[in-house]
Design a protein around this nucleic acid. Structure first.
Length: 350
DNA sequence: AAAGCGGGGAG
DNA sequence: CTCCCAGCTTT
């Protein structure tokens, strides 16, 4: 017995709703323009999709405009130094995306003549493009009739089918159930379903009375749309503790260095810190001098909570040669993740 | 199959 | 505070 009942999806109703209520987004071709023959630029769609991985539309907008202004084409991005891409990505999170973005731009230019492949299967072989992103680009740019399954669709379909297990355990079944319902306007359909999930069938609010899928929705029929999707048991978030050291030279420049190329915040810029452990420990200062305690920074990562004690001191620069000294006015342009911007702010560098 | 990987906004 | 967002890669 399948976990997903073969309840048909009224794609026509979804598209009719989308024609009236589509969100206006910087990377999107409106359904009216699309109907008039305007096609999306695969470069812009790809860039937006990568930025939108596990990231809200609101957070992406300014980054998208900044990136497309600096680098209007895949050729421009492929030619840009990786350092510049990381600096512009700083604050958006999941920094492996920026490295893969750059690698993907170079692959498209060097292996495909600057033209994005037009099938989901071919797109999926590129760096940073997985099952969702390949399907989204193929549908939105080329109207490939492929199932586009993101977090919104997980929720919408889990409710529509009243899925009795966590989505994780039925992903293939959901995809198959969606696939057989994908219409000719597959790009608009994909975006319509995502808009539906973002506005009507939202995580904490289900506005079933105005939903185009209301009549076929099992969860709505049961009167408990918010009971789905079934939540998997969540792991506790451990606490790690450590110390951060903000050092300035006599001229007031701040000592920065580059993080390791693998792991958390890989390749991004930081100030020196101790190890982050489960236990509070005494600060192992980088150099013996008069350190001033500037308070604490708390930062939440996906899988742990970090509490850093912030220390500052004026030091002799000769002892530090792995990194560089950055004038306070230049900090804004450094590839500093949010954690270290918090640390610097705590030490008085705004 | 599970873990690792950021950050922010909504409620 | 918790939840979760237009997920991908590595182990």
């Amino acid at each position: 017995m399948s976990l997903v009942s073969p309840q048909p999806i009224d794609a026509g109703a979804v598209l009719a709703w989308y024609d009236r209520h589509a969100r206006d987004l910087p990377w999107r071709i409106s359904p009216a323009a699309r109907s008039a023959g305007v096609m999306p630029d695969p470069y812009r769609v790809w860039l937006s999709e990568v930025m939108l991985q596990q990231t809200t539309v609101a957070a992406v907008k300014t980054y998208f405009i900044r990136f497309t202004t600096l680098w209007p084409s895949v050729f421009d991005l492929a030619t840009a130094p990786l350092d510049a891409v990381l600096r512009e990505w700083a604050g958006l999170g999941y920094y492996a995306r920026a490295r893969n973005l750059h690698a993907c731009a170079r692959a498209v230019v060097e292996q495909h003549g600057g033209v994005f492949p037009q099938s989901a299967a071919a797109l999926a072989s590129l760096p940073g493009i997985g099952a969702y992103t390949s399907a989204a680009i193929a549908a939105i740019c080329f109207d490939e009739r492929v199932a586009v399954l993101d977090g919104n669709l997980d929720r919408v379909l889990a409710r529509y089918f009243a899925l009795s297990v966590p989505v994780r355990e039925a992903k293939d079944g959901l995809r198959a159930a969606l696939q057989v319902n994908v219409p000719n306007r597959s790009g608009d359909f994909a975006q319509a379903m995502m808009d539906l999930g973002a506005t009507i069938c939202a995580p904490r609010v289900a506005s079933c009375l105005i939903c185009p899928l209301h009549s076929g929705c099992r969860a709505s029929q049961q009167g408990e749309p918010l009971a789905y999707p079934i939540k998997p048991v969540k792991a506790a978030r451990p606490v790690r503790r450590g110390h951060a050291f903000v050092m300035t030279d006599a001229g007031g420049d701040v000592y920065l260095q580059t993080r390791p190329g693998k792991g958390l915040l890989a390749g991004m810029t930081e100030v020196p810190t101790s190890d982050w452990t489960g236990e509070a420990n005494d600060p192992a200062y980088p150099v013996a001098t008069e350190w001033r305690h500037r308070g604490q920074v708390i930062h939440i990562f996906t899988h742990f909570r970090l509490e850093l004690e912030v220390w500052s001191a004026v030091v002799a620069p000769e002892s530090f040669d792995e990194g560089w000294w950055s004038p306070p006015g230049a900090l804004k342009g450094e590839a500093l993740p949010t954690l270290f911007r918090k640390v610097l702010a705590q030490a008085g560098f705004d």
